[in-house]
């Protein structure tokens, strides 16, 4: 799920950036530092949409770096248990398959794949129904449901299932090709 929230961060700026463009430099560094990172608490920071407030800088003893408290708005993405996501399959093996929904890695183990889908090994390992009408392989797009998340300080990992109503392949590039 996406959220638009306000976060705060203490930015350390090298003294060489001090000058007329200090603010721009600060924002650029904020984007570079924050976007694409993941915090266990808020999820993945997708984009910074604005800087609300930059507080008074504090000069560090010894280094000369200055610390600015910065309040900024950003869009974050945080997966939840029970959430339905659309994801792209990145890898298929006999244990199941891996997929990505943006920055989130999801593993679907083979017992959470419908029973009528069999694993086919080979050049392009895949799961296929007995009549061959549905196939899951690398780059397939699937809709899945998250049944569990593990949130570390810097990483979120999800377990998903496609063994439920309206889940499964939504677009098969192999079929189109």
């Amino acid at each position: 799920m996406f959220f638009h929230i306000v976060l705060e961060r203490n930015m350390q700026l090298h003294p060489r950036h001090f000058g007329p463009n200090l603010r721009d430099k600060l924002v650029a560094k904020l984007m570079k530092d924050v976007e694409g990172t993941c915090s266990g608490r808020h999820g993945f920071v997708v984009a910074i949409t604005g800087v609300d407030n930059i507080g008074k800088g504090l000069i560090r003893d010894g280094t000369g770096f200055v610390t600015f408290p910065v309040k900024y708005q950003c869009v974050v993405f945080r997966p939840f248990k029970g959430e339905i996501l659309e994801a792209v399959v990145t890898m298929v093996n006999k244990m199941g398959f891996f997929a990505e929904a943006g920055p989130v890695q999801i593993f679907v183990s083979n017992h959470l794949i419908p029973d009528d889908m069999e694993f086919q090994s080979g050049d392009m390992p895949n799961y296929t129904t007995s009549d061959g009408s549905v196939k899951i392989q690398k780059d397939s797009e699937v809709r899945l449901k998250i049944i569990g998340t593990r949130v570390d300080a810097t990483e979120i990992f999800c377990i998903g299932t496609i063994k439920d109503d309206f889940l499964g392949v939504i677009n098969d590039p192999g079929a189109a090709a």
Binding site: M91, N93, M95, G96, F98, F107, S109, G148, F157, I159
Partner: peptide
């Protein structure tokens, strides 16, 4: 468990 799967491949 499956959460470790990523590391185990």
């Amino acid at each position: 468990n499956a959460f470790d799967a990523m590391r185990l491949v």
